[in-house]
Amino acid sequence: MSETKVSWMKRFWAVVRYEMLWNIRKKMFIGALIFAFIFATLNIALPAALGVSENPYFTVTFSVGSFVFVLFAIVTGAYCISGEYEKGTIIPLLTKPVSRTMVFLGKLFAIFIVILATYGVIYTYTIIGGLLVYGPQNSLHLVPLALLGDILSTFIWVGVVIVAGTISKNSLLAILTTLGLFVALLFGTSIVGQLSDNPGPLNYIPGSGASGTMNVMTGQNITISTVTINTFAATTTGTDSIGVNLIKATLYPDANVNFYYTDIQNLINPNSTEPPRLLYSESITLIAVRSAVFALLYTEILFVAALFVFKRWEISE
């Protein structure tokens, strides 16, 4: 076989197919899919159970959810490099005329396609659910933006799990590292975001980021105990909310998000009437663009690091 006649693209697609078949035939993947559908169903049903009967913005403010992002990142990414090493399948693969860069990029592209298709199905399900439960839905043409935002959010975690797996050559360790980081960031940023008088740095950390309220109350109000939340106005700034924030910014580019400081004493004391103190306001457009840019940056850094390590692997076993 001549060395020059074989196109890069043909070989690349073979790697993509190889990885896609692996992903969709995993029992873990089927399990994650079932979980995602249960989660989406709860998202549709819970507001209705709390008394919301109409919400034209239900679908465009829907997100697959940060735990689902991590779940699919783990299911698709945890074994994609380190799993090949653990199972020994890396040897026949890397002795084919495919470079490690091609293997790495092919696998990433396959993960992208699998996640795109999965989220696409979940969003379709949500559109139908939204129409049936909350009536006619506005701005459905913006759903692809939410889909892409959610994929970007997921790819940060794909990057985390792949880099951990490539460095450790251990898939279990990669999963635990990713879950640990996710849980730490989830609780850490939530607590800091609520109680700190300077939540700004959270905007630059992967995860939920800082919480604020948008000055557009288009959605429905949901009241739980004494707290009322507007489904459209509640905004988080982190990389887990790129999709929703991009839609909000598209619909209301001039809107602002207000960030408040809540004194811990007021939270503990149920008789406190002191309102939360406004810290600062930020444009929703800035928030959406900044989180997308940072997500791209994190993803790129993580993938470049993983590829750097993978290219230097010596396969001795």
Binding site: E3, R11, I91, L94, T95, K96, P97, M102
Partner: peptide, 14 residues
């Protein structure tokens, strides 16, 4: 290490 094209002419069974 990692010369993909040279493997076009080689068959290998580990």
């Amino acid at each position: 290490l990692d010369d993909a094209d040279s493997r076009l002419r080689i068959g290998y069974m580990p």
